[in-house]
Design a protein around this nucleic acid. Structure first.
Lengths: 213, 213
DNA sequence: TGTCGTTGACTAAGCGCTTGCTTAGTCTCA
DNA sequence: TGAGACTAAGCAAGCGCTTAGTCAACGACA
């Protein structure tokens, strides 16, 4: 995760996320997505101008439209790829654990860590959602439901195997996701706690929230 | 809380919040704030036009500037009053309880309920914060620190009196606030759970998170 | 090998429209 | 008579996006 080049960590991780989305995407398109992610996270979708995105990517204003059909199309690509990598990571964490308790700990730790390391993308994904077109919203909503289902599944398994004590599974799943998602709202690279710290404490808190006593 | 008039509940509660902020504010200014709250919550600060706010309040575009110096000034008034009523409610809840456990339960339940009932104002307060001027941001940040302090105090008292078991007080306070604040993100009046349901389950989860076992 | 024709990435210029806010003036009521 | 609430009209600036055209890269073919 450390880097010996001059590239900032935030760019590194966004780059990795955007490149490893299972799409073949040109280098300029990736540069545009990184520029847009920076700008959207910083100022919000509507406060960001296409001229700003273009100049951050070293292009003229019209250059954006060679690679994306609209500003909203850029937002959608960021949202889709962000959700996909977050989901993939959750599924992998759930599959690797050998007990519901360990699965939940690893799930919430990983999701919290993702929202710290990718807090820019996380904010875009959560707060700019409403600016997507209805069709694009539907696509993203489907990905969100998959994420929800992973957490619920672990809770149901934990209850069945006697490890968890849960009154209301959907409500508890939502609370657990709140814990992790909200990290993107308050995290900043300047704070005392590292993404790894946050992952550890949130994973522990998650287990406390449902463990039989 | 129930109403026999045609006024929707959301307007009622926003109205009450905006009117009871300890300021003397004219009826037209309150109408403008309600219109702005609706619009900002719905589309975001930058996607909302002053013409939209004015027409929702039944005024011409220029009518806004009789009562507020700018669009940002309207956002600031909403943020300030929103934070103030949220803080006042927290302080009252903490003072009324007679044990740290009950204080925490009532704190998180009340804060969760507030973020459900005032989810519009809650979203504005959380997601439009960055669009405030630096000075206005400072004013609001001071209010946030007060809110943080109330939660930390209860945790410290609970640990001292042997009721709570907490590794990291600031981190746990943040997690507890995440639980409540994030309600504004996902709550909608159409969902199954009522604000009272959410308050009850979140209060219970909060206690679980810190209770000695 | 040389030179076409094509394609894709990109830019300079700018169009039509909307934005936040101002100005000059009207109306109401104490 | 004068102060405050409000409007009609509009200004300067900035917006998303398009148009028309440049330029380098490249395969096809005489």
């Amino acid at each position: 995760m450390a880097t010996s080049t001059g590239t900032p960590l935030s760019e590194q991780s966004i780059l990795a996320t955007l490149e490893d989305s299972g799409d073949t995407t040109g280098a300029t398109a990736v540069r545009l997505m990184m520029a847009a992610a920076d700008a959207f996270a910083d100022r919000g979708f509507h406060a960001t101008t296409t001229r700003d995105i273009a100049s951050r990517a070293g292009l003229s204003p019209a250059g954006v439209y060679v690679h994306f059909t609209s500003k909203e199309d850029l937002l959608f690509e960021l949202s889709r790829r962000g959700h996909q990598t977050a989901r993939d990571q959750l599924v992998a964490a759930a599959a690797a654990a050998d007990s519901p308790t360990e699965a939940l700990r690893s799930l919430i730790a990983g999701f919290s860590r993702w929202h710290a390391e990718h807090h820019q993308l996380g904010r875009i994904v959560q707060y700019e959602f409403r600016h997507l077109t209805p069709q694009h919203r539907d696509t993203v909503l489907a990905l969100r439901k998959e994420i929800d289902a992973v957490v619920r599944d672990v809770l149901v398994r934990g209850v069945a195997e006697g490890e968890f004590e849960v009154d209301d599974v959907p409500a508890t799943a939502l609370a657990l996701l709140s814990l992790a998602v909200d990290v993107a709202r308050w995290y900043s690279p300047e704070i005392r706690r590292t993404p790894a710290d946050i992952a550890r404490t949130n994973g522990e808190l998650a287990v406390r929230l449902v463990a039989r006593r």
